[in-house]
Amino acid sequence: MASLDAARTPNLDHLAKNLLPSFSFANRTLSVGVYTIADRLKVELNGHVVQDKALTPLTSRITQIVVPYMPGRLVVTAFIDGRQIGRRPLEIVGPPEALRINADRTRIGANRHDLSFATIEIVDG
């Protein structure tokens, strides 16, 4: 579950790089949990606003937002008194389609003292 908490972290850009940079679910809808002190949330999916929700003190700490599932970019923006206090993008991935392998070297010796590291990525469509 992604979190958005402006009280503890006024600048949330680092969260986009460190927490849940992508996610994927097989369901037709996706329930996104948002933790915030904001009084309004705007949820965009692939550039289209899917929800613009006013929050009350009872609903602002933890709120669930249901969005349609489709690959692309989901962005949740939090506001207090009309001022943006946080923005959290997430990439929604599609099904895996290929493997990408990148080695740190192009040649190694045929002996037990030579070594190469490879990074294997699962690529979606």
Rank of each mutant, 00 (worst) to 15 (best):
S3R: 04
L4K: 11
L12A: 08
D13Q: 15
H14L: 13
A16C: 07
K17Y: 07
N18Y: 13
L19H: 13
L20M: 14
L20S: 13
L20W: 11
S22W: 15
S22M: 09
F23R: 08
S24F: 15
S24Y: 14
S24D: 06
F25N: 08
R28A: 11
T29N: 09
L30G: 08
S31E: 15
S31G: 13
V32D: 10
V32I: 15
G33R: 08
G33Y: 03
V34M: 01
T36D: 05
T36I: 03
A38C: 08
A38I: 07
D39H: 01
D39F: 00
D39N: 06
R40W: 00
L41E: 01
K42T: 14
V43A: 02
V43F: 00
E44P: 00
L45I: 02
N46K: 05
N46M: 04
N46L: 04
G47I: 02
H48D: 02
V50C: 02
V50W: 00
V50L: 01
A54E: 10
L55T: 04
T56W: 05
P57F: 03
P57H: 01
L58G: 14
T59I: 07
S60E: 10
I62W: 07
T63D: 13
T63P: 05
T63V: 13
T63A: 08
Q64H: 13
I65F: 03
Y69N: 14
Y69G: 02
Y69S: 11
P71K: 13
P71G: 08
G72I: 09
L74C: 09
V75F: 00
V76Q: 00
T77D: 01
I80A: 08
D81T: 03
R83L: 01
Q84C: 04
I85T: 09
I85S: 03
R88W: 12
E91K: 03
E91D: 05
I92L: 12
V93M: 09
G94F: 00
G94E: 02
P96V: 10
E97A: 15
A98N: 14
A98I: 12
L99D: 06
L99K: 15
I101R: 15
N102I: 15
N102T: 15
A103G: 10
D104T: 13
T106D: 10
R107E: 12
R107G: 13
I108Q: 12
G109F: 01
G109R: 06
N111A: 01
L115Y: 09
S116W: 05
F117Q: 13
F117R: 13
A118G: 06
T119F: 09
I120A: 14
I122A: 06
G125T: 08
